[in-house]
Structure formats: structure tokens, C-alpha cells
Design a protein around this nucleic acid. Structure first.
Lengths: 241, 241
DNA sequence: TGACACCGATGTGTGCAGACATCAAAACTC
DNA sequence: GAGTTTTGATGTCTGCACACATCGGTGTCA
């Protein structure tokens, strides 16, 4: 039911708010939204309730439905991330995700070396070898698929459900990087070997080596992507006291 | 409006699902929930829509409202985190948050050293000094307050809105740690100095030193808390393909 | 005359009740 | 077993009553 009226209403309002089309402070009335989207009150009310839980709007009696500033949005919500990736904040969103990934993956590798179940360790090694092959043979789509699979296994193997939940976002950044031509036709030798190093370190339970090798991959990734970020302004969320 | 019927319905169902009282696969009907919570259909529907957006339930025509497994929940949603902290998964949730923090803060410190606005850097140094004083004089409540403020400034100063959003969760872990008597009456000297080191490194833009000092704090924090975690089983979220 | 506290009118979200539409699971027919 | 019909749940729409924050008017006091 991805195109129910409810879903479409959320999508419509969510994209417009995140894109800045409906700026912070903008006031709307439920009745006016019914008219605009040509749906009934119940649809609007249920959609507004969801947007409220995402921190995109707040409702006040006698006032209406007010759009909240970006600092109140839940930046980890998959829908908010999707809307930002689809809009003009795409660059900033990709940078945020890449930095988050850079922070998390080395620790995830360390934890996976300590805790991952045996079958997952074996699969990780297999995938790392397959990545090296696909990379050397220039099979870009297969490489992307394996790359996503590798990092998903790593996050899953950490045994931390918050890390594991980043699988989807990581897939998004890797895909975005490939689609936007930020990847060389032939991935470089060194990063391919580092992936193998991570997998083998996890496989033998060497958490320090896993962390170190993963850190190398992340530093390389960041330095490659940072060129296309420099123009994106950073946003500083004020400290709430 | 924190005690509207809508809010109470979400709270009721959310806590019961997260606590395992309503297990994955459990089926409910809207009509039955109306009866049980003694509210009208619109209240139930709006609450279910919100829970649906959090990944806690799914609705199917002709079937009803089905509780989803924990692997489908959004582990970054503040409400989900709060429900887990309030229930029997408290230990696992605190560990997840601490590991996330351990991963993020060193990178946040690095970014803050590169990007934070000047006033924030100055405030960070002030707070670090005040922390050292409060720590040495054994003023626990003030120390906790300053500790939260310090780490909030650090995350905010990174200029990454996802990092900044973790302020609330970090406050929760620090408070939880203090309330549960996991903190010594007098904080140790070394960590106090490391906080000052982080602040001064950020202040002078030395990102490597900031990351290093922050990493020391995190390693100490993890090793102190890990004693109370060992009994918590880890959950491995399967890779979705 | 001016400042301030009170109070009632107004408008908008919240909650309720009932109807019909839709659609997928389940039962039935061949 | 394949195709069709029935059924029962969510999806959508609508009219109404209520709660309550805001605003403007009224009255009191200095």
C-alpha cells in the first residue's frame, strides 16, 4: 500500500518541508490541506500525526500546524534521510552519512571481531575475495553489490542493532557514490586488500587489526569524497539546555 | 499536550510492544484496541499510523495490525530508545548507546577541531575547566550537568547534524550512569585532564590530538561500563537482501 | 486619562460515531 | 487445482460536539 492517500499525503508534505518549500514557522490549517491535497480530514490528520512524530511539524490549538526548523527533525529517520537525499540537501546528507559511517565502521569491525557468529565471519571473507576479483575485472555493478553486502555484514556482525540499522544508509551512500561517477572504473588495489584484511582479522578475532584496517578504508573514502563537499555549508545545531 | 488520548495510546502500545508484552507476530484488531483502551477509532488509527512509521507494526487489510520483530524497529527513534530504556532491554540499550558514542565522539572531536565556530571552542574550554573543578570538589550534580554540556558542545561543534542529534541520547547515558551508581564519588584525575586536552586541542584546531584525547575518554568509559554488560545477550540483525 | 486585570467570543485542533469503499484472504465451485 | 465468489478487515469520508489557546473588549484602579 505504498500509494495510499495517507502515504501520498506524508510524501507530499514531507518532501515540501524538507526541501524548504514550506519553511520553518510556516503555518497551515488542516482544512486548507484537505482542500489542497483533495483528501479528507482523516487522511490529513493521520499524516500530520506521523510528521509530528518525525519532528517536522507541531500542532497547536487555535493556531494550526506549524513547520518546525530543521534542528527539530529526526535526522536518523529513514524517510527524512530519503527526502533530504532527493532534494537540494543531497550533498550535505551524503557527507553526514559518510562521516557517520567513518566513525562507526571501525568500531563495528572491532566488535565483529569479538562477537560475530562463525558463519558470518566466513561469509565476510568470501565476499572480500569476491570483491577483489570483481574489482580487478572491472565488473562495476557486481562490485557495488558486493561492496554493499560486505559492509552490511560488517555492521550486522557487530551485534549492535544501531550499527546494523545503518546498513540501508550505507547502501545509499555507496550507490550514490557509484551513480555519481565518484568511483574509478577499476577500484584501486590497496582498498581491495584492506577489505580482505578486515575480513581476515575479524575471522581470526583480531579486533585491533580489524579496527585498524577498517579505519584505513574509511580515511581513504572520506578523503576521496571530501573534494565534492567543500562547497556544502555546515549546519551547527544549537545546544538545547 | 503530552497526555492527549492519542499520546497515551502510542505510549501504551509502544511500551507493550518494546517490552515484549506484545510479541512479534501478535495480531490485533482496531476494534479490539478501541474496546481495550476505551477510545474512539480515530485515536487508535492515528496511533497505529505513528507506530507504523516507527516500524513497530504493520497493517494488512483483512488481517489486522501485526506486531513486527525488533529487527524492523527504528533503533534511532527517541521514543523507541526511551521505551527500551524504561523496560527490560535497558542494559542492552545502554550498551548500544555507549558503543555508538564511543564510535562517534572521537570523529566529532576531529571535525569540531576543523570546523567549530570560535565562541563554541571558547565555551568548550571553559566547561572543561569547570568540570575539573567540580570533579575535584566532589560536586556530583554539577559535574553531571557540566559533563552533559561538554559532550553536547562537542557533538554540536562537529557541524554534523546526525552527530548533534545524539546529544539527548548521550545525556541519557551519562545520567543513567550516575543515577545507577556507576560513577565514583570523585571522578578520577586522568579523565578530567583528557577533557581539558580535548577542549584545548579543538580550541587550537589540532584535529589529531582532539581525536586521540577523545578516544582515550571513550576507551575508559567503555571499559568501566562493560562489566555490567557481559550478561546482556547480543542481537544480530540479519542482512536484508 | 491611562495601565492593567479580567472575561467572554472565536476559531481550530481533538475526539467521537457511523457510513461506504476497497481489497486481499479464505471459502467455494467447477 | 484453477478460477470465482464471499467475507471481513483496513481505508476513506463526513457531520458533530468538545476543549482550549488567543484575542479583543470591558471594567477597575491609580
Amino acid at each position: 500500500m505504498t500509494s495510499s492517500l495517507h502515504h501520498r499525503a506524508i510524501e507530499n508534505l514531507g518532501t515540501r518541508i524538507v526541501s524548504g518549500d514550506l519553511p520553518a514557522g510556516h503555518l497551515m490549517l488542516a482544512e486548507q490541506l484537505e482542500e489542497e491535497l483533495q483528501v479528507s480530514r482523516s487522511v490529513i490528520r493521520e499524516a500530520v500525526r506521523v510528521l509530528q512524530s518525525l519532528g517536522l511539524v507541531e500542532t497547536t490549538k487555535r493556531v494550526g500546524i506549524r513547520v518546525l526548523p530543521a534542528s527539530r527533525w529526526n535526522p536518523f529517520d529513514p524517510q527524512v534521510i530519503r527526502w533530504r537525499l532527493a532534494g537540494n540537501a543531497r550533498g550535505a546528507q551524503l557527507r553526514s552519512l559518510a562521516e557517520l559511517r567513518a566513525a562507526v565502521e571501525p568500531v563495528a569491525a572491532e566488535l565483529a571481531a569479538q562477537n560475530a557468529p562463525a558463519p558470518l565471519r566466513l561469509e565476510l571473507v568470501d565476499v572480500a575475495y569476491a570483491m577483489r576479483e570483481a574489482g580487478n575485472s572491472g565488473d562495476v555493478p557486481r562490485f557495488l553489490e558486493l561492496d554493499i553486502h560486505f559492509h552490511s555484514l560488517l555492521l550486522s556482525g557487530s551485534g549492535n542493532e544501531m550499527f546494523a540499522n545503518l546498513m540501508g544508509q550505507v547502501a545509499e551512500t555507496l550507490t550514490g557514490r557509484t551513480v555519481h561517477g565518484l568511483m574509478p572504473d577499476h577500484p584501486h588495489e590497496a582498498p581491495l586488500q584492506w577489505h580482505v584484511d578486515v575480513a581476515e582479522a575479524i575471522s581470526r578475532g583480531d579486533s585491533a587489526a580489524a579496527r585498524e584496517a577498517s579505519g584505513r578504508i574509511m580515511r581513504r573514502t572520506i578523503s576521496q569524497m571530501s573534494d565534492s563537499w567543500t562547497e556544502q555549508p555546515r549546519v551547527f545545531i544549537p545546544v538545547r539546555r
